[in-house]
């Protein structure tokens, strides 16, 4: 695909160079500004796009400094003003005068004013912390549990690992898959109804980065346990202590790690 802003920058450069040869400071000035604008906008192809405020600031600075440069010598300044004067005054520029001075500029100014005064309405956006800091302690159905340093007790029973995973699978498909998905990809058949959409477990940026204790806290407390910065009022994650036992929560956690090929973070 042709990138538009580098093209603008090159056109500006060509105008600028051409006008140096033809000794026209006004077009030189215009060409330089066009080129700078093109370059500033091109930045978005190699880094995050520059905010429009920043671009406006750079453009204003360029405008004034080049304007000073071109107006400092009287002769140059006269030549600089010449094209503008010609459009206004010369008899052979009548068509250009009508197009630019009497039609183009008034319409452009009107349009800028319209954009400025027309009210715009955008729904509120909320930034949301996806993985908030867990508490050091929580309660599970009234029983106090230390989240800090909490380990999955079933992992110690390595002989029954496959059995626990299979039991976790059953729990997952009777409680979680509606939202988190048949394939644990967060695309469950009811997921579309909720906002934020349920998280996937596949991939390396959710449970793969979390210790099991964190997952235990999230599954057990759900939306109720979220701090305000994580927008508990929008979360459709149930508090699974209402529906599952501690052991069942650990089993389902084993299943979601095992079936996605992820390992709990242990550091």
């Amino acid at each position: 695909m042709l990138k538009i802003y580098p093209v603008i920058a090159i056109i500006g450069l060509v105008i600028s160079i051409g006008s140096v040869i033809r000794k026209s400071p006004f077009f030189n000035f215009t060409g330089i500004l066009v080129c700078i604008y093109g370059l500033l906008k091109s930045a978005e192809y190699v880094m995050p796009a520059l905010p429009s405020q920043v671009i406006l600031m750079y453009m204003a600075m360029s405008f004034f400094s080049f304007f000073i440069y071109f107006s400092i010598q009287e002769e140059t300044f006269k030549a600089f003003l010449e094209p503008m004067r010609a459009v206004f005054a010369d008899d052979n520029k009548a068509l250009l005068r009508v197009l630019i001075v009497f039609i183009g500029l008034p319409l452009f100014a009107g349009y800028l004013t319209y954009v400025k005064v027309k009210p715009t309405y955008d729904p509120p956006v909320s930034a949301r912390i996806v993985h908030p800091e867990p508490p050091s302690q929580m309660d599970f159905r009234g029983k106090s549990v230390n989240v800090l340093g909490l380990e999955n007790p079933l992992r110690k029973d390595a002989a029954n690992f496959a059995k626990y995973v299979e039991e976790g699978k059953k729990i997952y498909y009777q409680n979680c898959f509606f939202c988190h998905g048949d394939d644990l990809d967060g695309k469950g058949h009811l997921s579309q109804a909720f906002n934020p959409v349920p998280l996937p477990f596949r991939g390396t940026d959710t449970i793969a980065q979390l210790p099991e204790s964190f997952v235990f806290w999230r599954v057990s407390k759900g939306w109720r346990g979220l701090p305000a910065g994580s927008g508990p009022w929008n979360s459709s994650m149930p508090s699974f202590e209402d529906f599952l036992t501690e052991e069942e929560v650990w089993k389902v956690i084993m299943f979601i790690y095992d079936s996605t090929g992820n390992k709990p973070r242990s550091w």
Binding site: F88, P106, G110
Partner: peptide, 17 residues
């Protein structure tokens, strides 16, 4: 406002001319 601004710019243009 937009028509007013357009008109203003047009008048200024005619004046300058």
């Amino acid at each position: 406002f937009p028509p007013l601004v357009s008109l203003g710019v047009l008048i200024a243009g005619i004046g300058l001319r």
